[in-house]
Nucleic acid binder design. Structure first.
Lengths: 221, 221
DNA sequence: CGCTTTCGTTAGAAGTTATAACTGACCTCA
DNA sequence: TGAGGTCAGTTATAACTTCTAACGAAAGCG
């Protein structure tokens, strides 16, 4: 019994139409990118005339914001699910890559070029910090200081800085080394994924997955 | 004596108008991003009516492609200039960061979200490989195998793969270790810059430059 | 059954890119 | 110096886009 079943017929219909709009929006974005999204085209595809869509989304921006929210939510769920099934940092890396390759434009909706004026709603930044939280959890291994610390490249100046500037991890007990590790995980993997999905490796001849795996090895050694 | 001086008055005028169009296009992109670029608005700003611009650029896409080309050219020149003045890999990293921060939207024009259908002209990919070349030069230190190899994190599987898949560096004598180093330089620094310029570090409290410098230290240690 | 809410419609305003046809100025060349 | 061609910029127009306003009709609720 899903949520939709519990609502009035009108609400069910409304939810269904909204879902179809979003689905077709995803299709358009996948083939033409976010700037190629056209409300009019969606309406025509659905057999209704332009302005009808404004009953469901106040503006084109609101629709896109909704898609961004869903993309963030999807990524957060993917990461959390991987973490819940016992994946270590390397496992999270694999999950992240699979999620990115599954729908490149969805990845770019989250991590792509921002519109200068745009400011994400609070609930989206909340999801972002949820992702960060999962990363921080995985960044401090189970037997933390017990056995020989299998650390990747430590960096005292950076850790000193992070120790004093950790608003983003204020409510997380991770030590500076884990903060550093989580940040590197994020930035390094995003660097590869972003360039790969944008096609900057095309024609170079090597397989990006080798580079990705190599970075994962170093991050978790 | 610049190129403009040698041309006919008509060509000089034409070049000047083209330059002014591009300048205003940059201004628009800086404040509204690439999707916010409007040919009509530029024409009005310049005191002429819409279609006049089509004498100078065949389409909006052609104008943007021209801007992308200039952005690539600017980056390549910046990197080459740094390399020519004796900068090592870390120095190139500093130059790259300065260039990116100087005009974030210009950076995104090169490394931002791609339009799915778009394929860059050959001369642009040529500039890209020119950048890669400068990176490869700096990635193999002066006294390469002479003294104790001050290597960052080696990775045999990755280097083995790169040794056999080096089309992108076919005409460059750099050893696999240098290929790996150049690739990591590129992807890691882009990862940080991309997230920083997109504002993903906003409100986290730490200074991205610390992370950037830390990565540079590890890449060049 | 009647009232109200909501959905979808058409009409229209204000934009956009881009093309076609025309005018007028400049530049070259005889 | 005059004639012709080239080229810049114009207006008009088509085909789009987002989005608002006003209206009709259908569906749900008391």
């Amino acid at each position: 019994m899903t949520v939709a079943d519990k609502a009035t017929p009108r609400e069910r219909y409304r939810a269904q139409v909204r879902a179809e709009i979003k689905q077709r929006a995803w299709d358009q974005i996948a083939t033409a990118g976010a700037p190629g999204l056209s409300l009019n085209a969606i309406a025509k595809q659905m057999g209704m005339s332009g302005p009808a869509l404004y009953r469901y989304f106040a503006s084109r921006d609101e629709l896109i914001t909704e898609l961004v929210r869903d993309a963030y939510r999807s990524l957060a769920d993917t990461i959390r699910a991987a973490a819940a099934s016992g994946a270590d940092l390397a496992g999270l890396g694999q999950a992240l890559r699979a999620w990115a390759l599954d729908d490149p434009q969805r990845y770019f909706l989250v991590y792509g070029t921002p519109v200068p004026g745009y400011h994400a709603p609070d609930d989206i930044t909340l999801i972002a910090s949820e992702i960060m939280d999962a990363l921080l959890n995985a960044a401090q291994p189970a037997g933390a200081a017990a056995d020989t610390p299998p650390d990747d490249d430590p960096d005292t100046p950076l850790e000193a800085h992070l120790a004093q500037h950790r608003q983003w991890a204020a409510d997380h007990p991770a030590p500076p080394a884990a903060l550093r590790r989580a940040l590197r995980f994020w930035t390094r993997l995003h660097g590869i994924l972003s360039l790969e999905l944008a096609g900057h490796f095309n024609g170079m001849g090597f397989d990006p997955v080798e580079l990705y795996e190599s970075e994962l090895r170093h991050l978790t050694r």
